[in-house]
Amino acid sequence: MNNIAGEMPWLSKAWKVVQNGLKEDRLPHALIIAGEHGVGKRAWADAVSELLLCDQPANNAEGLPTACGHCKQCALFQAASHPDVRAYSPEKSKVIKVDQVRALSAFTVASPQVGQRKVAIVDRADQLNINAANALLKTLEEPQPDVSLLLLQESGRPVLPTIRSRCQVLTIPAPGIEQAQDWLSTRIEQMDEADRPSEQTLNKALMLAGNAPRLALEYATGDFIGLRDEAFEQFRQFMKGQVPVTQAARAFKALGLEGALTLFEGWAVDLARLSAGGQAMDSEAAEMLGFLARTNPGWRAHELQDKVNEAREAAVYNANPELEAAQLLIEWKKLMPRRRRNA
């Protein structure tokens, strides 16, 4: 049986919504699952798909249905060969295109091939281009009784209000530090000892990922942390006027555009937190951001977030990562107090 809530307990509330809906035959035809990158939205959607497709769901100790794990539907799903579940995600253009949504629409109106129900996952609904969003809206307005739509949305990335209004929204929170550490430790223990990152690296990965465990695992086992540290050092030196913008931008280019934008966005959010009397998530950048928070009005943080969103929109058109980073660095530099000239 799928034990997604046991493996990732922060998913349990959203998981029980589906279990209760299935038990009481009142499951909505379309769900938006919102949450930060790396909290397990796709794993949750996969578990829901298996449950909805299962021919012989069993009841757990609370009397709620769970996938049996051994019927024909479960076997097909576990082999990643079930014909009645489809997933649609951004392609090289970083958006979900209208042709993909048309394929989804054709899938939803066709009869199930081997089961009683079909499931379509849109990963991610916040990356639909305008034509694709309008095409999906038509599918949502004419729901099929044997189809469940699961739309995944990253926090802070908007979905059209017309789409949102036709779905039930479930929010998956980031786990607390102890839950995140427990999950991460379990995964690290499964690795070869020689490949295991240090405890210091794990803690830093969790900090940078905002306690999103799956993203932290990616950070801890990849090269993101080293690239981030170099970008932050160049950022710090640029803000002090010690290096030119071109040099600092090259360090952000190494992260790729999305990685660079994630850093800038995180710092802008932290600046807003500090301006409001809160604490920064990025503890290593807290001193610099605290200085900027004390010397600038709070609305400047939101202005920087808007600039990041503009750069993210430009990414659809294959924007130059180095150029976008340079433009954002210049916007940040405007927050530094101007030095007074000697009389």
Rank of each mutant, 00 (worst) to 15 (best):
T66H: 13
L170K: 09
F235M: 13
A133W: 13
G69F: 02
L206M: 10
L128G: 07
I32K: 07
A58F: 03
W10I: 15
R214H: 11
I130T: 15
E142R: 09
A325C: 09
P297N: 02
L53Q: 05
W267D: 05
R250T: 12
V169W: 11
L52T: 06
A106I: 04
P161M: 06
V18T: 09
L76A: 00
E265I: 00
L150G: 02
R339W: 07
Q200G: 09
G69Q: 13
C71S: 07
W15A: 03
A14E: 12
P213M: 12
A231W: 00
A311D: 12
S93A: 11
W299N: 08
E189I: 11
H70L: 02
A47T: 03
G241C: 10
L274V: 00
K13T: 14
M8Q: 14
Q78S: 14
V159T: 12
E141A: 05
G210I: 12
S105N: 13
L263K: 01
E265H: 04
A43T: 12
R273H: 03
F235L: 15
A231G: 06
A315D: 06
A14I: 05
R157I: 05
Q116E: 02
N320E: 07
A311K: 09
N309H: 11
V245P: 01
L11Y: 05
F238L: 00
K240P: 00
H82D: 04
T171Q: 15
A325T: 05
H37P: 11
R102D: 09
R124G: 06
F77I: 00
A268D: 07
D306G: 04
L323V: 10
L170T: 06
D55T: 10
V243H: 09
G266H: 02
K307H: 15
P143K: 02
P9A: 14
S155Q: 12
G69P: 11
A180Q: 03
E193V: 06
